[in-house]
């Protein structure tokens, strides 16, 4: 769905910039772009729960991390893994983890749901941190990225930053389009009803538990896709990728961009990663750059206090200002 509040020309220009960017950008920025898009997929998965079903999960990193670990654990040590096998496997394991945990957490609501999703995510963190299963706190290296192989033909070499960028871009577009369809399908409409009024949905005959669980599993699988890609890009996994901070960060992205709208999640991921880059740049903050979370934390506190109706509402106002500019200024912008 094209956001109504964004002018179509601006959107097209943005899309074009995203597609052409790797051709002109330095490798560092191309990699940063891929990272942003991976986080955007992650944020989309959480937005399905928070923004579209009304389930505030504070444990989404669990499924992201589990899938990353699956790739690390099943990759051969010195040769490329087969993407067609490892990607579905990683997503399936993430989905199964979400199914088991979801079966327990979806019984709860409100504050309980927040605490319980966080707690189970921490359980998985403990599994990878305390046991030798995933290399303990040191994690595991993935020396060779998986290979995209279609009957001997390799359309994309994922070791190449530019081609990896395009691979992630395609997947982001697919996930976006897929979620867009899901939300307009009967399943998605039922989720929208559950978000607004769960009691009413039950009294007109919807098995709300199953719908919520379905959303939880789908979100888990998509978070798994993002986690798989993150493991590909960074070349190693350690327990920190499923730590609770990661869940907090992705929730931050969803809210920053305005929850309940798919483009909001993408925008949120983009803004957050960029802010992080700026705050942690030594050129800007000198010795305090390594304490960038101080600035980020203060910003979060400020945003929540200053915009009582949420950042989404604030962004709406800004976007409306941009899209309803007087025609004269729009024309000068176009040239």
């Amino acid at each position: 769905m094209i956001p109504i509040s964004l002018p179509r020309t601006a959107l097209l220009a943005a899309l074009l910039a995203i597609v052409l960017f790797p051709l002109i950008g330095a490798t560092f920025y191309v990699q940063l772009g891929a990272k942003i898009m991976i986080m955007a997929i992650f944020a989309l998965s959480l937005d399905l729960l928070v923004g579209h079903t009304g389930l505030v999960s504070l444990g989404q990193a669990a499924y992201f991390g589990v899938a990353a670990y699956v790739l690390a654990l099943i990759s051969p040590q010195y040769e490329a893994a087969n993407l067609w096998l490892t990607l579905p496997a990683a997503m399936a394991v993430a989905a199964v983890a979400a199914l088991i945990i979801g079966f327990l957490v979806v019984r709860t609501a409100g504050v309980y749901f927040i605490m319980v999703t966080l707690a189970f995510a921490q359980m998985l963190y403990s599994v990878f941190h305390d046991t030798k299963l995933g290399g303990g706190s040191d994690g595991i290296y993935i020396y060779v990225r998986p290979e995209l192989n279609i009957a001997g033909f390799k359309p994309l070499d994922l070791e190449n930053p530019m081609q990896f960028y395009y691979f992630v871009l395609i997947l982001l577009a697919v996930v976006y389009a897929f979620l867009n369809r899901v939300l307009h399908a009967p399943f998605g409409r039922a989720l929208a009803g559950i978000r607004l009024n769960e009691q009413r949905m039950r009294s007109i005959g919807f098995p709300v538990f199953s719908y919520k669980l379905g959303a939880f599993v789908l979100a888990g699988a998509l978070a798994g896709l993002a986690g798989y890609l993150a493991a590909c890009q960074f070349g190693f996994v350690n327990p920190d990728i499923l730590a609770w901070q990661q869940s907090g960060v992705v929730l931050m992205m969803v809210i920053l961009g305005g929850m309940g709208r798919l483009h909001g999640a993408v925008l949120g991921a983009f803004s957050y990663v960029l802010l992080q880059e700026v705050f942690s740049a030594p050129a800007l903050l000198g010795a305090y750059a390594k304490h960038w979370q101080l600035v980020m934390g203060s910003l979060i506190v400020m945003i929540v206090l200053v915009f009582p109706h949420g950042i989404g509402g604030f962004l709406d106002i800004v976007l409306r200002r941009i899209s309803y500019r007087p025609p004269s200024s729009a024309r000068t912008d176009g040239t």
């Binding site: 899901v182 307009h184 399908a185 009967p186 399943f187 039922a190 005959g205 098995p207 379905g214």
Partner: peptide
């Protein structure tokens, strides 16, 4: 009345 729990594709 026609629970489409697994219908994630067709427009409602």
């Amino acid at each position: 009345r026609a629970p489409r729990l697994l219908n994630w594709w067709r427009d409602a």
